[in-house]
Amino acid sequence: MAKLTHLNAQGEAHMVDVGAKANSQREARAEAYVCMAAATLALITGGGHKKGDVLAVARIAGIQAAKKCADLIPLCHPLMLTHIKVALTPEPERSRVRIESCCKLVGQTGVEMEALTAASVAALTLYDMCKAVDKNMVITGARVLEKSGGKSGHYVADTEAHHD
Rank of each mutant, 00 (worst) to 15 (best):
M1P: 12
A9H: 07
G11L: 01
D17L: 00
V18R: 01
V18Q: 10
A22R: 12
R26V: 05
A30W: 13
E31T: 14
C35D: 14
A37V: 04
A37F: 00
A38R: 14
L41M: 12
L43D: 04
G46V: 00
G52Q: 13
L55T: 09
A56D: 14
G62Q: 10
A65R: 06
K67N: 08
K67L: 15
A70R: 09
L72G: 00
H77D: 13
M80L: 14
T82G: 13
H83I: 10
I84Y: 01
V86M: 07
A87G: 03
E91V: 15
P92L: 08
C102S: 04
L105W: 04
G110N: 00
G110C: 03
M113W: 12
L116C: 15
T117R: 09
A122E: 05
A123K: 07
T125G: 08
T125W: 03
L126P: 11
L126D: 06
L126W: 00
M129C: 08
V133R: 03
V133K: 06
V133I: 13
D134F: 03
V144H: 03
K151V: 03
K151A: 08
G153L: 11
H154Y: 11
V156T: 04
A157K: 07
T159H: 06
H162Q: 03
H163D: 08
